[in-house]
Design a binder for these strands. Sequence first.
DNA 1: GTTTAATCGAGACGGTACGTCAAGTCTTGGC
DNA 2: GCCAAGACTTGACGTACCGTCTCGATTAAAC
Lengths: 198, 198, 198, 198
Amino acid sequence: MANKAAPDSSRRSERSRRAIFDAALALVGEVGYDKLTIEGIASRAGVGKQTIYRWWPSKAAVLLDAFTVDVEDYEQGLPDTGDLAADLKFVLRATADEFNDPAFQAPYRALAVAGANDEELSRTFVGRLLEPGIRVYVERLRAAQEAGEVDAGIDVRVAAEMVLSPFSQRWLMRTGELTYDFVDTLVDQVLRGLRPRD
Amino acid sequence: MANKAAPDSSRRSERSRRAIFDAALALVGEVGYDKLTIEGIASRAGVGKQTIYRWWPSKAAVLLDAFTVDVEDYEQGLPDTGDLAADLKFVLRATADEFNDPAFQAPYRALAVAGANDEELSRTFVGRLLEPGIRVYVERLRAAQEAGEVDAGIDVRVAAEMVLSPFSQRWLMRTGELTYDFVDTLVDQVLRGLRPRD
Amino acid sequence: MANKAAPDSSRRSERSRRAIFDAALALVGEVGYDKLTIEGIASRAGVGKQTIYRWWPSKAAVLLDAFTVDVEDYEQGLPDTGDLAADLKFVLRATADEFNDPAFQAPYRALAVAGANDEELSRTFVGRLLEPGIRVYVERLRAAQEAGEVDAGIDVRVAAEMVLSPFSQRWLMRTGELTYDFVDTLVDQVLRGLRPRD
Amino acid sequence: MANKAAPDSSRRSERSRRAIFDAALALVGEVGYDKLTIEGIASRAGVGKQTIYRWWPSKAAVLLDAFTVDVEDYEQGLPDTGDLAADLKFVLRATADEFNDPAFQAPYRALAVAGANDEELSRTFVGRLLEPGIRVYVERLRAAQEAGEVDAGIDVRVAAEMVLSPFSQRWLMRTGELTYDFVDTLVDQVLRGLRPRD
DNA sequence: GTTTAATCGAGACGGTACGTCAAGTCTTGGC
DNA sequence: GCCAAGACTTGACGTACCGTCTCGATTAAAC
């Protein structure tokens, strides 16, 4: 079933791996995803093309690895000051700043997009980046639910999406700006619906 | 500002235009967006490559035109039976069926995605397809607001996004299934927050 | 049976064709046949690789065409002064000079060699370059035979090879020098055997 | 002058050496010289690439060694029954049979050819395979000369080439068949010229 | 018999060229 | 003047080998 005699990863060159990540991230920022090429990455990294093809199936996969190396930081979860609205606004405002940073936009948007046409890649992208991001919101909401701040009948997963999806949709599709005002309104309107009934 | 001695559209061949749309839509369904080529469209349509380049700047633009020709049907707005929850659920369930249809997925997803990397195209896509879709929801919500069914303090645009974005995000990013259950829960939780305060 | 939709040769670019020939001949002289590459020819000729692949199947075929364009000059046959020995020596000495010219050696040797491993090419090479060269000798010998200068029982084709093959073999395999002495001895010893018997 | 810290041949693996020869000869027969690769030989021989590069400079050199291991058999010289014509015809007919054997053709032709573009290799090839072959003919002719069967004024080296070159040239360049008829005619016509003058 | 250093199988590496595909431009002949 | 057709230059694709390089694991010579 293994379709090509898998390479021996214990002999892999760490130096090349880093150089490829650095080159890929730099280039996607400079020329954009469509004009990002394997040859370009290889040449910028001072690496043979084969070294890329040996370890990754596509430029999207390279970029995904390169990106996740720098991004794994969902470990600590969302802050919990006891004030759910404040906590959500605080984190979303910070995320808005991050999403408005051009250096971050190019690779992330590229991956979102590449995923849409490549189901395999999509699953990795979602599992590695999107789901963990959603999960921390779900957990914060569940905590609030347990604290009685959120109605027991609420589906917290859907609630989390009600906050996150309008946010990322605006950014991805460029249907609107990610302002603090928007973030605040969004959080307020979502939370209105989560409060326990009288 | 005219960048090439614009072609004389009065002499344009309608037969070629249709053939190109048909070929583009057929091909994007068969081979996917990434493997869709101008040469492929031209050859399938029995048309010279130049005829495509004369009238469109990119394969995405061709596809966008091809797609919108068949889709302009937001004219009538959302139903208004007086029961907001029922109306939203009804339309979203129908939309879920549509989005789950493979024939519809390929070109739509391709466009969503192509837009992410091409700001110019993105604006057309959003203006021509996305915004009209959002607007009918905004209008239905405003009607409900005027009828006193929705609190006067609510930002109906954000409310519309709270319904639509989780829905389209799930589909686009494959973060979840578009089931009737999901649609119902989503609508219910959003509407909880919109009700006028006591 | 035609295996690729043959290109339309009436629309062929003569300018590209010449540039390819010039580049191929120049490069084979500079770097040798083994290091001659299609990419090198294309780039030196200012031509796309595809334009070469469209019209020729291999670098050997390009070189063969390039070479024969410049070489078709067997038209006039060998001189016939009535003195067979003198005529043969005269022509072979001139040919020795030619074969000792480095500019001529590279492509000719390359073709001889490429032919050895490619039967198809070999046939063209032999038919286009080698056979015509042999034929003029055969004709000169037949004339001498009719003039009674060569025995009627002699196989002139084999006789021609007795003159030409030692000559070209020495050159091709580097088994000896092509000196005037060698040429003279060779002609004399061959002709000894051709004289009519008493 | 030793250009790399020469390897210690006393520790050389004989088993690997044989395996490499076998693989090289087998492969050149199967895929031809052009498609013969060092990697292919190494993998077929179950040997590391370095083991080949350590002991040979090129695939041609490997093949030359592989070939000469099996071929050293010029020791005994040509037969001398006293009948020069008969002796030459006998040996050349046998050689014709050998050259017409496909198993022999591939490596030999490959080497002849590789030599044309690689002067260093050429010299080894000529010295190790070609010259010894010519020499036995030269010696047989000299014996005949001393026996008074060949004119004293004849250059026996050139005479040997008059027999051998048309033969090998026909084979190498595919300008004609190696039939018994050809061999006989060739020998007869050459010998006509060698007879002592009246 | 043990030590020890070179050779060995294996294969990752930086490269070059392959032969193919498609992009976007340009030219030709037909309507 | 638009059109179908397709040759052109360009540039990237993914593959095949090159020749160099490291990595344990033999393995045969020197101790």
